[in-house]
Amino acid sequence: MPVAATGDYDDGNIFARILRGEIPSQRIYEDAFAVAFHDINPQAPVHVLVIPRGPYISWADFSARATDAEIAGFVRAVGQVARDLGLEEPGYRLLANAGVHAHQEVPHLHVHIFGGRQMGAMLPR
Rank of each mutant, 00 (worst) to 15 (best):
F33V: 11
F33G: 05
A34M: 10
V35K: 02
V35G: 00
V35H: 07
A36F: 00
A36G: 03
A36S: 00
F37E: 00
F37Y: 10
F37A: 02
F37K: 02
F37R: 03
F37G: 02
F37N: 00
H38F: 15
H38Y: 13
H38V: 09
H38N: 09
D39T: 00
D39V: 00
I40V: 05
I40D: 06
N41G: 07
N41H: 14
P42G: 02
P42Y: 11
P42R: 02
P42A: 06
Q43K: 06
Q43S: 07
A44R: 05
A44V: 06
P45I: 14
V46G: 09
V46E: 12
V46A: 07
H47M: 07
H47L: 04
H47R: 03
H47N: 00
V48R: 01
V48K: 01
L49Q: 01
L49T: 03
V50Q: 02
V50F: 02
V50H: 03
V50T: 04
P52Y: 13
P52R: 14
P52H: 08
P52V: 09
P52F: 11
R53A: 10
R53T: 09
R53G: 09
G54V: 08
G54D: 05
G54S: 10
G54C: 09
P55A: 14
P55Y: 14
Y56V: 01
Y56S: 08
Y56D: 01
Y56P: 00
Y56L: 08
I57G: 07
S58T: 11
W59R: 15
W59K: 12
A60L: 12
A60H: 10
D61C: 10
D61G: 08
D61W: 09
F62T: 06
F62G: 04
S63R: 15
S63W: 13
A64I: 08
R65F: 03
A66T: 01
A66H: 03
T67Y: 05
D68V: 04
D68M: 12
D68R: 08
D68H: 12
A69E: 10
A69G: 05
A69H: 06
E70Q: 07
E70P: 00
E70A: 05
I71A: 08
I71K: 11
A72H: 08
G73C: 14
V75K: 09
V75N: 15
V75D: 10
V75G: 09
R76S: 13
R76D: 11
R76K: 15
R76I: 13
R76M: 15
R76L: 15
A77K: 14
V81N: 10
V81F: 06
V81E: 03
A82D: 15
A82Q: 07
A82G: 13
R83H: 11
R83D: 08
D84C: 11
D84P: 04
D84M: 06
L85K: 07
L85T: 06
G86Y: 10
G86C: 13
G86S: 09
G86D: 10
L87H: 07
L87I: 05
L87P: 02
L87R: 03
E88S: 14
E88H: 14
E88G: 15
E89W: 14
E89K: 11
P90K: 14
